[in-house]
Nucleic acid binder design. Structure first.
Lengths: 215, 215
DNA sequence: ACCTGAACACCGTTCAAGT
DNA sequence: ACCTGAACACCGTTCAAGT
């Protein structure tokens, strides 16, 4: 029963630390570099050792999504207005996306109705339960916000990666017609914090105007 | 110079027909079944033959996205109100997503600032150019709609696949706590056409209320 | 008991040989 | 000239052998 001192190099190898090593690789090298073999190498163990903690690749990917969603600020703040809660989640989501642009594709591709995304939605629901918002209203309100935020962050993540790679000479759309290039430049404006603020206010105004929730 | 009758089996093998075969596989079996080898088998040719038409897998995926976006109704209808144009695109997008739920993940993951998504955005911009909407206003308006629609269709596609698989006994989230199951059920409401209508009207109301465009 | 190398069935892609 | 099988460097995962 007593725990003897462990002479192992990897004292803290666990399902979470495996996911964390995976996220580290994705952040540093990119999503295409993520493999069970590369994660094992990162941790300095044999590939098969990972299977003691993580059942398969799909689980690893979901665990990484869990780590990312845990970075989003969904604390309950008593007395906060429902729309201020959404604003807080939105800007926090934006910062997470900018910290992990390569990994965000995993969030966008993750099953919405399963763990860990479902727990994330449940936490947001709790955030609003204290604000006299019933379940039906919450679903109506959050389905719009969630769709908008997910779509926005997909664009933001791609923009962030793109602008990071902009050192590499001509962009791939440099060959596109002039009016498309202008359009692309306009859409790339998504990077600024103000772009999210403006777009989010449109959505929140719509929720207010549609009488779904008090504005 | 004269074109002799071609005794070949695959008279019309082209970059587009390769993409079409790929889409066929994704629709029938699922995204994980898509590989250059499976597409070649579908077409009854050797794997390497594909490289004569499609330079690499990435191009194949983008071509499939192109086929999907071509199914979306972006025709110009003279005199149509800007918001009716958006409604038409939205419902058409919904039908495309329901025809190709497994393939939609490719659309969501496709680079937004490159072909073929960029051309798609350009076509929508043209649709509005005739309606006295200037470039700046269009970008502001479309960035909200595009983010919302993309996020919505990601959820819709997942719901469609999920409900298609519902024959298979218990769902994966059946082990989740009761309140999460209820939440999942509410969010799965996304499947109905009315769900899109309601959410879209919220966004359009927001655009109207924010004074960006005439409502 | 714990860890992991070899092996298997796949990938995308290159290269050289087939017709 | 066109087509493609063999080969290479990867995958995720199973299984059996190593300590």
């Amino acid at each position: 029963m007593s725990r003897p001192g462990r002479p192992r190099v990897h004292t803290h190898l666990s399902r979470e630390s495996v996911a964390r090593a995976g996220l580290e690789i994705v952040d540093r090298v990119g999503l295409e570099a993520l493999s069970l073999r590369s994660v094992a190498a990162e941790l300095g163990v044999g590939t098969m050792t990972l299977y003691a903690h993580t059942p398969d690749r799909q689980t690893l990917e979901r665990d990484i999504v869990g780590l990312l969603l845990d970075e989003v600020d969904v604390r309950e703040i008593p007395g906060e207005r429902w729309d201020d809660s959404i604003r807080r989640v939105a800007f926090s989501l934006r910062e997470m996306t900018l910290r992990h642009p390569h990994a965000f594709a995993l969030v966008a591709a993750a099953p919405v109705f399963e763990s860990p995304v479902l727990e994330y939605a449940a936490r947001i629901r709790q955030l609003h339960a204290r604000q006299d918002i019933d379940g039906e209203t919450f679903v109506a309100m959050w389905s719009v916000c969630d769709a908008f935020l997910t779509g926005f962050m997909v664009m933001l993540a791609q923009s962030a990666i793109r602008s990071r790679e902009m050192t590499a000479a001509a962009s791939a759309s440099a060959t596109a017609p002039g009016h498309e290039q202008e359009l692309a430049r306009g859409l790339a404006d998504v990077l600024s914090k103000d772009a999210l603020r403006r777009d989010l206010e449109v959505v929140l105004a719509g929720l207010g105007a549609s009488g779904l929730v008090d504005s």
